[in-house]
């Protein structure tokens, strides 16, 4: 069988960055940067009726490929999938016509509340049984390939029955979805839980990886926190090179969401990603 990427015609978009309001002028009026070939947007920020956000999005889409990245779908929650959310996502995806859309392997809702965080799943067979039909339903509803990202985590469950990479691999295979491999999240979780980050990278089904995220994190002493607030650390670049060497050329994204720097600094980070990418790929 052809790989997930081949079957769905998933392109290698090169290196992208998250589109943030602070950089509107640089990107939309200044033309962006030659080091940045595509943009990711947080889906929920564009599930609004109108105004400047939607105008900016339309202008961005005129010039670039834009991939929507969700943070509150809550695919792993025991609560029903939110049909309003899916309707809004479908509208956004139709507007952007991206090669795929993404979200996280996590839950955000519990007890009727939206907790607005990427809360980790226990790595159990039962959680897989819960996730797989929901992922299929989302993919069928939105009618675009769907890729799920591994999250950073700060706790591990006693009930987990397998390593995270096996959990993600099985979900992706059984739901037939893509994987957004966040190597910074792998690094953060590996430190927090004491597992081997390289083993994680090596264990992910490479043909399903449609995009790789890299980001900076914060050392809180007792744990690493995924803050997206700094430059990418050298150890994460090393993991990135390992990952893209295994996957082959796939889209790469620099995430920088807090203490957001000037666009030039972000573009320089994208240029750095390109260098690491070129160094890793034949």
């Amino acid at each position: 069988m052809n790989s997930f990427r081949t079957r769905h015609g998933i392109p290698d978009l090169g290196v992208g960055v998250g589109f943030r309001p602070k950089h509107t002028h640089d990107v939309l009026d200044g033309g962006g940067s030659p080091h940045v070939s595509w943009y990711e947007v947080i889906s929920e920020n564009f599930m609004v009726a109108g105004g400047r956000p939607m105008d900016n999005l339309a202008r961005l889409r005129e010039r670039f490929t834009v991939v929507p990245h969700g943070v509150t779908m809550s695919i792993g929650a025991v609560e029903k999938l939110d049909t309003d959310y899916l309707a809004r996502l479908k509208k956004l995806v139709r507007t952007l016509d991206p090669p795929y859309f993404t979200d996280h392997v996590c839950f955000c809702k519990a007890s009727g509340l939206d907790l607005h965080d990427l809360l980790p799943m226990p790595y159990t067979k039962e959680a897989i049984e819960h996730l797989v039909p929901r992922i299929k339903r989302v993919q069928d509803t939105i009618e675009k390939p769907f890729a799920l990202e591994n999250v950073s985590s700060y706790l591990s469950y006693r009930s987990s029955e397998m390593p995270e990479h096996e959990f993600i691999a099985e979900i992706a295979e059984r739901a037939d979805c893509g994987i957004l491999l966040d190597v910074n999240n792998v690094f953060v979780s590996a430190f927090n839980h004491g597992f081997d980050a390289e083993r994680f990278i090596d264990g992910i089904p490479k043909d399903r990886v449609v995009q790789i995220h890299v980001a900076g994190h914060t050392d809180k002493g007792a744990y690493l926190l995924d803050t997206h607030s700094d430059h990418v650390r050298d150890e994460v670049w090393a993991l990135y090179e390992r990952a893209i060497r295994l996957t082959g050329p796939v889209a790469t994204l620099i995430e920088w969401d807090d203490l957001i720097p000037t666009f030039n600094v972000l573009a320089d980070e994208a240029a750095r990603a390109k260098k690491h990418r070129d160094a890793a790929l034949p």
């Binding site: 519990a110 007890s111 009727g112 907790l115 809360l119 226990p122 159990t124 039962e126 009930s159």
Partner: peptide, 19 residues
């Protein structure tokens, strides 16, 4: 683990985060 147990774990988060 059953979905109910998954639900219990998730409800525990909601309860903890509310503090």
């Amino acid at each position: 683990m059953t979905t109910k147990n998954l639900g219990d774990l998730q409800a525990m988060f909601a309860e903890a985060l509310a503090s």
